[in-house]
Each structure stands twice: as C-alpha cells, then as structure tokens.
Design a protein around this nucleic acid. Structure first.
Lengths: 199, 199
DNA sequence: ATCATGACTTACCAAATGGTAAGGCGTCAA
DNA sequence: TTGACGCCTTACCATTTGGTAAGTCATGAT
C-alpha cells in the first residue's frame, strides 16, 4: 500500500524537521503510527534512504511551484517579484520543509555522501536568471544577481525558521503583525533595492 | 586548570556547530583531546550544561562586539551601517558560532528548558532601536524596524551558513568573489532600501 | 604528617540506537 | 493446490549513548 509509505514519509519529514537527522530515531518516527520500526525499514531500507526520499519530495515540490509561478507571469519583473512572494508564502505554509532544508544546509558539508545540493544548484540558477531578466535591474555580472537573490532567500528562510522563537518572544498577535510587515518590506526591497547599474 | 576547560569548550563548540547537539557525542568531543569523557563530565556535569556554556560564551562575544562598534560611531546612520558590516565580518570569521546559533534557532522550540533566546531578545531590541534612531529611515512602528533588521540578519546568517555549500558548488575563487559582491549588495540594501515613511 | 580538595582515571551501566534474521499472513498467478 | 511475493511482525544484536561510582594522584593548607 502506497498509503503506508506516505504515512512514513510525512511522519519522517515532521520529525526530521523538528529534531534533525541525528536527533530523530526510527523508533520515534514510527511512534505515532500503527506500524513497527521494521515496517519502516522494510519500505526504505535505512534511515538515510528514508531521509533522502523526504528531501527529494520537498525539492520536487519546490520545483513544481517554481514552474507554476513562472508560467503564470510573462513579464520578467512581475515574474521575479511574484516568485519570491510565492516562495515566502510557500516557505511559511510548509514550515516543516523549510526547517528541514535549513538543517540540510547546515549538515550538508559533513553528510557528503552524494552531493545533495543538486536541487539547490538548479534552483539558484533559475532564480538568478530570473533576476537578470528583469530590465530595471542591471546587474554587473551573474555574481551580483546571485548575491541579490541570495539575500532574498536568506531573509525569507531565516525569518520563517525563526517563527517559533519570535512567537514565543513577542506573542502570537505581535508576531502575526510582524509577519505582514515583513512581507511588505520584502516587496519594497525587491522594487527599490534592485541595483541600477551598480558599477 | 582553566586551560583544560577552554580546550573542552572550544572542541565542543566546533563539534556542536558541525554536527549539532544531538549529532555530537561527548566521546566525539573528547576524541581529539588528551582527556577522557569523564574529565569533561567532571568539569561540566552534563552535555546539556556544556552546551549551555558554549552558547553563553558566544552570546557574550556578540554583545561585546555590539558594544565596541556602537561605541566607535556616534552618528546613528553610520552606527547602524557599521554594525551590520561588522556583524557580517564577525559571522564570517566565527563561522562555527554562526552555524551553532542557526542550529540553536532550529532546535530552540523543542529543547525549551530555559528560554534560551534571552540573548537574542536583547540583541534584536538593540538593533531595532539602532535602526529607529537613523533619521533617514522613518519606520511606521517598531515592527517595521524589526522586520527590516531581521531581513538583514537573515540575509547575513543564511549566507554565512551557506558558505561550505556554495563553495563546493561554485568553487573557491567564484565564492570569494560572491562574498565580496554580497558585502557591497548589503551596503546598498541598507542605504537604499531603508524605508522613507512607508505608510 | 594529615587532611581536604580538585583534576582526572578506570570500570561500569541501563537505555537507546540502526539494523539483521526469520517467519507469519494474505493475495494472486499458474 | 501450490508457490511466489509483498507487507509486516517478533526476536535479536552489536554498538553507542549520556551518566554514575569509586578510586588515584598531586597540591596546598593546617
């Protein structure tokens, strides 16, 4: 039954996101499911492979969403802006995924195994090309565009990942306001901070 | 001997930064030191307390640096800008600390214990006040200033934490250029993206 | 000389870890 | 009816985990 696999994958994703790869035991993943540890191992072979599948699902979703937004907007400037707005919304609503990817970034160097940044690479390239296609932004070179894109990505990811901390720090209402404020600041950043022939 | 303690603290910091709290065993921390596991436990009592001390050291350093930069610049706009430039440099040169703090942010919610965000709270408050003190930036409210500050922090932290990945992705030379580019983009962001009565 | 104290050791330990082995059980094709 | 196969189980297992107990040894005060 594929349904069982999905249950495992979902529970694993949540657990890995909350506690990280090393902080998550197979036993813990299975805890809330009506299956045993060995059922999980039967389906995925090892914890590592399970993690790999979780990661792959997430990056596939990201790519799909990127396609969708890109297809919905033909004008480069709109496309660029809407992509990041959508990315922010997506990162927020899939907070578990965002957490997990942040952890992956931190672990990446040591759990080398297979280069797991393949998805990041194409992701970044697409976003960078998108930025370079915007007429109002005249980047000196690819690096400049990438730096700009990376600032946006960093701001978004970091903010989303901070949500629980900020919420417990300022309270839920205040945090909700902050979140709206953040979105508008993000938009202005994209509109106004775009380099105009920065050389 | 305090020297021994320092050795433990340094090794622990590096290990926690590289592998996270759960991915790091006491045995592994001690591995490269001429002491046994129990020597560490003798000094710190438990892994958790050791981690706490590591964290405290880092936040004390951050506060010290914040004081230094703030004291060196009296004009609010310069002070604000120089603070973030210094923070970027600091985050880069203390990459291990940056990694560790990012992990802490991710783990924070579950390893609640004592609210560990005390340092973050005052850190954010100081930066926000600093932003609000800049005449050219007229924020509608505290939230707006905080959102702005948080974008900067996010961009910086995320970028620094990405360094190993980006380096393996694009190569060392290319990454070095990207890093310089990032710094200049950051400066422009602060100068140009500052809200001017955004209402 | 003796005692205390702090630094560090060896010897252990219960619990949890990821994973293997082997078998039960239902389904479905031959 | 039989045999194969996929799903899932119970039994295990070696290793690693964080931590305790108890001692050795040097130093330094009384």
């Amino acid at each position: 039954m594929t349904d069982t696999r999905d249950q495992f994958l979902q529970a694993a994703r949540d657990a890995f996101a909350a506690r990280g790869f090393y902080g998550t035991s197979i036993a813990h993943i299975v805890e809330s499911l009506p299956f045993t540890k060995q059922a999980l191992l039967h389906h995925f072979g090892s914890k590592e492979k399970l993690y790999g599948e979780v990661l792959q699902r997430i990056s596939e979703r990201l790519m799909r969403e990127l396609d969708t937004v890109a297809a919905a907007h033909s004008k480069p400037d709109r496309r660029f802006e809407e992509t990041f707005i959508a990315f922010f919304e997506s990162a927020r609503s899939h907070a578990a995924d965002t957490h997990l990817l942040m952890r992956e970034l931190l672990d990446n160097q040591r759990r080398a195994e297979t280069a797991r940044n393949w998805y990041l690479q194409t992701f970044l390239e697409r976003l960078t090309r998108m930025a370079q296609a915007v007429p109002d932004m005249q980047f000196d070179n690819k690096q400049a565009a990438l730096a700009f894109v990376y600032q946006l990505l960093g701001a978004i990811n970091y903010f989303v990942v901070s949500a629980p901390t900020l919420q417990s720090m300022f309270g839920q209402r205040s945090h909700a306001r902050l979140q709206r404020q953040f979105a508008t600041e993000l938009k202005r950043f994209m509109q106004v901070a775009a380099p105009l022939s920065s050389g």
